[in-house]
Computed example of a mutant assay.
Amino acid sequence: MLSYYIENKVHLSHWEPERTADFYTEERWKLSLVQSRVAFESGNEVKFAVINKQRTEVIGVCNFTNIVYGTFQACNLGSSIAKKHEGKGYMLESLEAAINYMFTVVGPHRIMANYIVGNERSGALLKRLGFENEGLAKSYLIPISIRS
């Protein structure tokens, strides 16, 4: 995970929050992975690492966070792909599998995703996945969702 974020630091800086120096340390990632496991086991989030077919490299991530149960039953999707793997269909394949897992195993009725207006690739990908545009947050992200 650390290598993925270091190698894609500039690429991801356009789409993700500003990161502090400790984000790029092994200590931080050891703690983050423990926290992610606890959050998964408690049902609060599901995070996937997308790895290459040889299982030697993380090439992307997709995260389902803010999982809400009860009447709302929804969550948020976030994802990214390594710069060198853009346009190869890996994120589409990964998100199809991850979304299927979420709807069949976790059971939300709704998955919401936001993307920055200028990120046309993300917008097109979400549309191909069946997400519908629900509005525009003019100074931040575009909220869209998919329902089971």
Rank of each mutant, 00 (worst) to 15 (best):
M102N: 05
Y101S: 07
N100S: 15
A124E: 14
F131T: 08
F131Q: 04
I144G: 03
L136P: 00
R110G: 04
R128D: 09
F103R: 08
P143A: 12
L129E: 10
N100L: 04
R110D: 10
R128L: 15
L141A: 10
L125G: 13
A124V: 06
I99C: 01
S145H: 11
E134M: 02
V117I: 15
G118H: 13
I144F: 00
I116A: 13
N119R: 03
N100E: 14
L141P: 00
V105S: 12
K127W: 00
M102Q: 07
V106G: 03
Y115I: 06
L141W: 03
R121A: 15
M112Y: 01
L136S: 08
Y140A: 12
S145M: 04
F131G: 00
N119A: 10
S139C: 06
P108K: 02
F131A: 02
P143T: 15
S145G: 11
F103S: 06
E134D: 07
G135Q: 10
V106Y: 02
L126Y: 08
R121P: 02
S139L: 14
I144C: 15
S122T: 11
N114S: 10
L125T: 14
L129Q: 08
A137P: 00
N114H: 08
V105P: 00
M112I: 04
T104A: 10
P143S: 09
V105Y: 07
I116M: 14
Y140R: 10
S139M: 12
M112P: 03
H109A: 02
F131L: 05
M112G: 07
K138P: 10
P108M: 05
M102R: 03
N100T: 14
I142G: 01
L141E: 10
N133M: 06
E134R: 01
L126I: 05
P143H: 09
P143R: 07
N114K: 01
L125M: 11
V117L: 13
H109L: 07
F103A: 09
G135L: 07
L129N: 08
L129F: 01
V106R: 05
L136H: 12
R121F: 04
L126F: 14
N133F: 02
N133T: 12
V106W: 03
Y101K: 01
I116W: 01
Y115V: 07
L125S: 09
G123E: 09
P108C: 06
T104I: 03
V117A: 15
Y140D: 11
L126E: 07
I99K: 00
P108G: 03
I99L: 13
L126W: 06
A137S: 12
E132K: 12
V105C: 10
T104P: 00
Y140L: 02
A137Y: 14
V105R: 14
R128W: 04
Y140H: 12
I111A: 04
S145C: 15
V106P: 00
T104V: 08
M102E: 12
V106Q: 08
L126D: 09
G130N: 05
M112T: 13
P108L: 04
E132A: 13
R121S: 14
G123P: 11
G130P: 05
S122Q: 11
R121E: 13
V106D: 06
L141H: 08
F131W: 03
